[in-house]
Every structure is written in C-alpha cells, then in structure tokens.
Amino acid sequence: MTKQHRTQILVVLAVVGLALNLRPALAAIGPLLDLIEGATGMSSTQTSLLTTLPVLVMGVCALAGGRIRQWLGEQHGIGAGIALIAIACGVRYTATGSSGLLATAIVAGMGIALVQTLLPAFIKRCFGTQAGRILALYTTGIMGGAAVAAASAAGLAQAWDWPLALAIWAVPAALAVPLWYLAVALDRKAAPLPTSVQLHAAAFWRNGRAWQLMLFFGIGTGAYTLVLAWLPPFYISLGWQPAAAGFLLGGLTVTEVIAGLAVSALIGRFPDRRKPLLTVLAMLLAGLVCLIVAPLPLALVASLLLGLGIGALFPLSLIVTLDHVDNPARAGELASFVQGGGYIIASVMPLLAGILRDQFADLSQAWLVMAVGVVGLIALSWRFSPASYGRINADQR
C-alpha cells in the first residue's frame, strides 16, 4: 500500500469520524424525553425544541455557507464545528435545566451546521468521481452515530442518570478533532480553497430547480427528524419500556446504516436516480402507514421500512443535489442552499409533533402529516431526470 493510499484511507476515516458525531446530540434525546420532561417540567412542545432548534440552526448556518467558508476557511470551519459539538455535549452534564438544555441544543446545532455545510465540497474536491460513494459513507456514518446514541441512551441513563447519558458524547467528538487535522495536514488535495477569491456562482435562490431540490431534501429530512425525536416517546406512550423504545430506534438507525451502505455500493449502477428514489420513498410511506394503522403488531415491520426508506433517502438527496453541478465550489454552494432551506423545513416536523402531542396526547396525526409529505416527494422525484440537470444553470423561474 502506497503512502498516498494510506493518506486517502486516513481522510476517509476522518470524514466518517466527523459523521459519527453529527447526530448523538439529537438522537440521545428521544429515548430520554419523558425523563427530561419529568426532571425539568418541560411540556412536549418545549422538549421538541431540543430537536427543532439544532435542526433550525443547521439550516440557517448552511444558508450562510459561502460566507462561513470565506470567514473561517474549510479546514478550520470543520474543526471548529466538531469542537462546538464536543463542548455542547460536555456542558449538558451540569446544564440540566430547561434553559441550559436549550442553549446547548443551539450550540450543538451550530457545530453540526459548520461540519455539514463545509464537508460536502471538501469531499467533492478530494475524491472527484468517487465523491458519490464517499458521500454515501459520510451519510451512513451520520446514521451510525445516531444508532449508537439512540440504542444506548436509556441504558446509560439507568446506570448513570440522564445528564451523563447526554454528556458522554463529548468524548468521541473531542477525539475527532485531532483526527481531522491530522488527515488534512497529510493530504495535498485537502489544501483549502483561497478565501480571497469571490466565487461568482449563480444566485440559487432565483433558481426553480434549486428550490425543488431544497423542498425534496427538507421534507425527506423532516421524516428523519420526526422519527428521531418522537418514535421512542410514541411507543413508550403505548406501554413500552424506555429501553425497548430506545432499542427500536437504535435498530431503525442500524437499518438506515445498512441502507446507506447499499446506496454507496450500488448508486453507480443508476445514473438516473429516479428509480432508487421511488423505491425508497415507497418503503418510507409504507412504514408510516404501519405506524398509523397498527403500530403495536407492526412495530418491527414499521422500523424496518422506515429505516430502509430514510437511510437511503438521505444520501440519495445529497447525491442528486451534487449531480446537478460539476464544479466543487459551486457544488458546495448548492449543497449549502439545499441543506440550509431543507433543514429549516425539517425543523418544523418535531415541533409540530410536540404541539400535536400536547393537544391530543397522541402522535398518529404527525405520522399522517408526514405520509402526505412523502406522497408529495414521490410526485416531485419524477422531475429529477439527468436530462433536467441543466436547469440548475438555465432555470431562473
């Protein structure tokens, strides 16, 4: 194995290490929501903000991706992001009141946003034609971190109490910081873009196709944030033990990882992404229907279908977005626009579910709203033919 190959493997490991730390700050919340509500007196609407606020901040920061790249630079921006995640998680050991938890949610969201905003362009530049596979590994790593956090949260809380179950995720985030800087120091392709040069990209906010991609990513990610925040409380309300509900979410996210790996391995066979998109959207819709009509007898079936659908949809959404642009700098700007608006859209779903739970003491209505959104995605996905990618340059509607 050559030195170049070893360096490239190290860069991939650094990317995966970053990805693993992008969801535990959110995923550990769901299985502990009832404990947090009992300890802090927060309502379901208020605790939903522990998921909504980070996702909202992720969206706002992603929209400012170009300015962030010029201000911090790619390498240091990503390094600062993972450091903020470590700090936010660590502070949760003592910040156990409602205001402290909400503040750390915002800080964690800022850190996640920095990494997610800057890393796709880095991947596109460093891996070229292999960027699609690395992006799939990256998104799979995101879901893998969520799986571990969700499955272990209730057990850690039982052993150590819930503040430590939230704070423990500072450790892997802190370890990811030196790994990232070591990888980029050794890889010549990781040299930062010159921040003094203005990238005169098209104004994506005036582009019809960019808005379609944003809406697609936002609604699809809304399914992920909804399940992440509210699947465990939903089953706890149906009589399950918190540990069992956490394991259900953990199993779902493991299925997401498997789906993400399948996308990484197979995506090259589908230059037209519409067939895999329609397949995974059908799985997602079927999983939501299971939650609505028979949540107890079909719990495992619902978990499997939701995991396969969400796990494949997330990387596919990013891959389809980056398919539209060849230039790495413009691809990063498009990814920032799509993820920025998309995460703002996605942040609405956990909040809406919290409001519905306070009003009706049930989450069935939230699953129904999400199912309607997925039907809309099925209709929208038909528009994403390879022949239509030129609209990102020409369509100014």
Score class of each variant (00 low, 15 high):
H5A: 14
G17K: 05
G17D: 12
R23E: 08
L26Q: 07
A27D: 11
G30M: 12
P31V: 13
L33E: 06
D34G: 14
G38W: 02
T45D: 04
P54V: 10
V57G: 02
V60R: 05
C61H: 00
L63Q: 00
G77H: 03
G100E: 02
V107I: 15
I112C: 07
L114F: 10
L118M: 09
L118D: 02
F127C: 01
Q130E: 12
L135M: 14
I142N: 07
G145V: 03
A149Q: 10
A149E: 08
A153L: 07
A167G: 11
A173F: 06
W180C: 02
L182K: 11
P192A: 05
V197D: 12
A210W: 00
L215S: 10
F217I: 03
G218T: 04
G218L: 00
A223C: 15
A229S: 15
P233D: 09
Y235H: 13
Y235V: 10
W240E: 00
Q241N: 03
G250V: 05
G251R: 05
L252A: 01
T253P: 00
T255Q: 02
T255E: 01
V257Y: 11
R274V: 08
L278P: 01
L281K: 04
V289T: 14
L296T: 08
L298S: 11
L300D: 12
S303C: 14
L308H: 01
L308A: 06
F314A: 14
L316E: 09
S317Y: 09
L318D: 06
I319E: 04
L322N: 11
A329V: 08
A329W: 02
A331C: 05
Q339T: 11
G340V: 03
G341M: 00
I344R: 01
L351A: 14
G354Y: 12
I355Y: 10
D358V: 05
Q359S: 12
D362Y: 10
S364R: 15
L368S: 07
A371G: 13
V375K: 09
A379P: 09
Y389I: 09
D395L: 05
